[in-house]
Design a protein around this nucleic acid. Sequence first.
DNA 1: AAAATTTCCAACCGCGAGTCC
DNA 2: GGGACTCGCGGTTGGAAATTT
Length: 284
Amino acid sequence: MGRAPCCDKNGLKRGPWTTEEDQKLVDYIQKNGYGNWRTLPKNAGLQRCGKSCRLRWTNYLRPDIKRGRFSFEEEEAIIQLHSILGNKWSAIAARLPGRTDNEIKNYWNTHIRKRLLRMGIDPVTHMPRLDLLDLSTILNSSLCKTPSGPLSNVEQFHPSDVTSFNPQNCQLNEWQTNQIVPSLPEHYVPLSDYGYDRVYGSDQSNVDHPPSETSTFQSNGNSNFSSFQSVLSNISSASSSPTRFDSNSIKLTSSSTEEEKESYCSNLLKFNIPDMLDVNQFML
DNA sequence: AAAATTTCCAACCGCGAGTCC
DNA sequence: GGGACTCGCGGTTGGAAATTT
């Protein structure tokens, strides 16, 4: 698997690892530990570069790696963490023991990202997709005249709505105002336990997606974005608590199918965004 | 049954940060 | 101070497997 070897300059092997190579690497690390990746392959008798050895170890051979499908709880944690951390896969992986950054990144790109796109959510900003919103203005004029039509919810936004969005006008349902603590896996480690400053720096100027309190709208100049983040967080929180938000009596478990998960999330969008956001505020 | 297409994910690439001399 | 080197991260690739036509 993976890309074909493209550089055999130093006579070093590339491409997929064999079981023999894996065994050599594991044996060496078990005896000597890992440290200097540059000299490790030579000492271990491997015709590989140190980088390749490090990747193989950290992404595949490490004994504490949990393999297999992601549970719904893990998936939900990834979405929440991504909404805060962005593409900081290593930071996300640090909060999901047993999962590697590469694994999470792959899972995001192959599963979660696509699902969010289908749901009309921009996987980068975690906000309603502007391209769909723009398209909706065309569709709305001819196809969707009634508030209960198939494109009556997020599709009724216009790109300019995002910049004119005023969080003070948002109305939250009871479950949204009460639902604060998201349901995360047992091994989930709160951000605060890791020290926010260490992740973001004191001024947070290097943060792609600034963190926001889960249930509190902010009123500063950057409130539009963070408010959407809050809304998203609430949506995600609701999806994590079927007993609290159970409009269709759907119980999602780790064995739920992709279709069940998507259907459940789609229902959240269809029936709840208009309730928590006063859509009239967005109409031109 | 075979070909075409899509999905999945291990592995590679390039860059930036940190460290050492 | 700055060049060389190492390490780690995020983005991307491409072959195998799965699915569809």
